[in-house]
Design a binder for these strands. Sequence first.
DNA 1: ACCTGAACACCGTTCAAGT
DNA 2: ACCTGAACACCGTTCAAGT
Lengths: 202, 202
Amino acid sequence: MARRSEHSQEEIKQMILEAAEDIVQEYGFSALKVRKIAADIGYTVGSIYMVFTGMDDLIMYIKARTWQKLAKHIEGYESTVERSGSIESFALGYLDFVVANEGLWRMLFEHHLPVGKGIPEDYLQAQATVFLLAERQLKLFDSQCPSEQVHQAARVLVNSMQGVSMQLLMQTLSDESIAAAKLEMLLLASCFMKGWQGGICE
Amino acid sequence: MARRSEHSQEEIKQMILEAAEDIVQEYGFSALKVRKIAADIGYTVGSIYMVFTGMDDLIMYIKARTWQKLAKHIEGYESTVERSGSIESFALGYLDFVVANEGLWRMLFEHHLPVGKGIPEDYLQAQATVFLLAERQLKLFDSQCPSEQVHQAARVLVNSMQGVSMQLLMQTLSDESIAAAKLEMLLLASCFMKGWQGGICE
DNA sequence: ACCTGAACACCGTTCAAGT
DNA sequence: ACCTGAACACCGTTCAAGT
């Protein structure tokens, strides 16, 4: 057969990424199989190895995209809320993304590269975007705090939010569990900020 | 062949659990294969299905054991440290376990049951032990705070520690990254506690 | 009754062969 | 040059057959 140039390599790459993301979102990371992706885009397995070196390569692409989407979502969410620029709106924007993109967000932590394989620079940069967003907002609260300390606080805060979000997804999602998680995120944000302002940075 | 009763069913079960835990610790969850376990204990694959219904069943057993070990580790760690009973010692005890049991701890979050399958009661109870430990210590700080609020704060705090620990394991472990994580755990504990005492519970 | 191991339906990856 | 699809070495699970 070998249908020639019906799609460019770049088009095929995008088709694979979108098909894979759909599978992860609908059936979870464990359902992401190369044969399923191939069937969904109307190509055979071999064609996927034309544009990706393997499943890990493909997955790292998707994970980088997910961090980017998360950063955009938080930025967009904050503009729709009254207390814009607050850590509370950051926390709720984060949680909102997690609920709406459960499969993709989970995959950020369910998957990891075999030991020894270096993490791609693009991936690390996409992840850093989210941390920088939190850092920027922390700066608004304490503009004279050393930037190294703000950096550390932002890391801790975002990672804490990740822990609270993870626990939410450990049970089956429901309106009640989501509402409870919102309160937990707000409690985390308010306690941490109150304690942080209260003298860590002198 | 069919070697008869060389080990009791219960002995085989323990041998499987220990072999599986060794594999997870040494090579990670992704290296946990039923054929590898069977080879390690000197039986064939079929024998594993005599004592476990399948891999998910075996994994949930190990995960429950890991939560129990974590609770014991935190309790033991606190007795070796001067500021016993503090949230800081809880945080450092938690982190100490994560570093020493990277593979097993990771599996708590890397693995999850297929949707629809209910989580075993034994597992939930083992997990709850760790949360109760934190709850007990929070009570020492604010004995008149409503128990429902203490419960929520303990959930948030432990989940936050999980988030910070997870981020540590996303990079290759080193003395520097572990030292940085310790500071992050302490910053989380101190900020959260300061903020929590500062008026959430009135 | 206890345990084996071949068989089954999968999986990611490779690569000679077709157009 | 682009793409196929059979082949390979795996995987979890089952179950008829042996002792």
